[in-house]
Write a protein that binds this DNA or RNA. Structure first.
Lengths: 299, 299
DNA sequence: AGCAACGATACCCGCACGGTATCGGGGCGG
DNA sequence: CCGCCCCGATACCGTGCGGGTATCGTTGCT
């Protein structure tokens, strides 16, 4: 029968406060980052809920009724107290620390937006960043060095839960004066005879296989073993090695990237230990999926 | 991008308070008139929102963390203050009066449930009931005697907005010793030669036509003119007249009703002047549609 | 070991919230 | 005086979330 009917929640009160201060639905809607019609409706519902008129409407504007003025005062203090509750509780919870592992430049610019958004929501939490090199695609998740990792698939996910944040096409990085540097796109096997990066032995096999160039080159194993982005770029510049990269990156002078037609895209993922259900991690994942688009959960 | 993410609304806090007091998700869910799974989820979301664990879960029960205990105190006071806001604002609005018109027994038992639910939501509002007779299907809406009417369609709805609350089959009322009283169902024309009630001249034509029996009888106009339920019943008992009624009613001793196969159902409606948008009326309509099932709006 | 209790998870559905498009009506200028 | 404009209200639509049912995993007790 649905008789709850309690519409006076904090969201609606925030709406009303905005309208009461702007005395104009359109401007209030802008301030609330929404459009005018649902705001009008929300205020109407609030009025029917309380059973009294809060605003005098006229085509030239809006004025508060006495009840509206009363609600404005009450609502402001209530909202302030609600914020107070947040800070109080998180203060009692103490300064928790969340350690985020990133794989080289996986996070790039969005990572800073992510950290900013997260710090805004959890001002008391400490966020430590630990940047990993190519020896560990989990960036320290398994060893417990970090709580959550921004990294790139694929790697062994037993015991680890990941969420795909984005899927980037992958290309090959060449010196700008390479004969193939001007091509629109390439196939992997066109570069099978080049020297390709190798990842260090002992790293995750799936991950090593994905990033180590074409199978033939990986088999030969005549390329340099790289651990950092810097090593990759230097070796390309110095001895003409080639290597894979996500095409979203900016490259230094003297290097270009060419799209590959036969290499599956690389997933930027956020990962955490499946057994670790701390709210800070949940919240971080939540913010991350919000900052990037929608995402699907796996493993 | 959806970055609002402010889950700490009053509803969620009510949930948490219930769990904190019961220390048991199942019992808390019962108290909240819901089931356990969405409650678990809501608390989880609250924890990720605040970024700290509020409850220690174990298969044998639940315990508050220090943060949980803090939130419990804060939340209780905040909820109390929220209720305070309600009462404060409605008090400032003053004791408004809502006059409800009912058409004879249209409201019947559900009417009392409606009034109870409405009084519970608006303790300060005065509700006056004005019972109308059959001379006015709007029960005083047009003349401004009432703000809102519980009545029966059809009638002229220009300038009036109605919502159908329910649709009742209509039957004919007979003396229990009438030769046709034992029939399972009847057609209207089987009773065309009887004397039928007539409604007073000058009432709404559509309404008069609907309730005045078969066209032939209405044409003859040889039945008594009735204004009240009492008059109807008395005239059936005394001189064998017959009349229409919604089959939902209980009838006094000595009378029975028989279903009619060729009479369209009668709509129980709630009606108000279209120009009258007072929140009290909106709220009353809202409660009414909740008390009866879902409903559709017309005119 | 088996069972019972309890919270968590998976999955589904209806609705409410927020969006776009449009209306109505009062004020003001040409 | 008519037409345009401003502003709030309404209509309608799509989607995400809050609720539901069914089931699982774990733990403790018998």
């Amino acid at each position: 029968m649905r008789v709850s009917l309690l519409l006076m929640d904090l969201r609606t009160l925030r709406y009303f406060v905005a309208v009461a201060e702007e005395l104009h639905f359109g401007r209030a809607a802008v301030r609330l980052h929404m459009t005018q019609p649902p705001l009008s409706r929300a205020i109407q519902q609030l009025e029917t809920d309380l059973g009294c008129t809060l605003l005098h409407r006229s085509p030239s504007g809006v004025a508060l009724t006495t009840a509206g003025a009363a609600l404005y005062d009450e609502a402001r203090t209530l909202l302030a107290q609600a914020e107070h509750v947040r800070t109080r509780v998180t203060a009692v919870a103490g300064a928790a620390t969340l350690t985020v592992g990133t794989l080289a430049d996986s996070a790039e610019q969005a990572g800073t937006r992510l950290a900013a958004a997260y710090r805004q929501r959890h001002p008391t939490a400490r966020v430590r960043i630990r940047e990993a090199d190519f020896t560990d695609p989990t960036a320290g998740l398994r060893t417990g060095l970090v709580d959550v990792a921004l990294t790139r698939a694929p790697f062994d996910t037993t015991g680890i839960t990941i969420r795909v944040l984005r899927s980037d096409p992958v290309g090959v990085v060449l010196r700008a004066d390479d004969p193939l540097a001007d091509r629109e796109s390439l196939r992997l096997d066109e570069l099978a005879d080049r020297r390709w990066f190798q990842l260090p032995e002992g790293t995750d096999p799936a991950w090593r296989a994905y990033w180590s160039g074409p199978p033939a080159a990986a088999e030969r194993g005549d390329g340099p073993v790289v651990r950092t982005v810097h090593e990759c770029l230097q070796s390309i510049l110095w001895d003409g090695t080639v290597g894979l990269t996500s095409l979203a990156h900016a490259l230094p002078e003297g290097l270009t990237s060419v799209a590959l037609t036969d290499k599956p895209s690389s997933d930027l993922v956020i990962a955490w230990n499946s057994t670790d259900t701390s709210p800070l991690i949940r919240s971080f994942v939540h913010v991350a999926t919000a900052v990037y688009g929608a995402a699907r959960k796996t493993t």
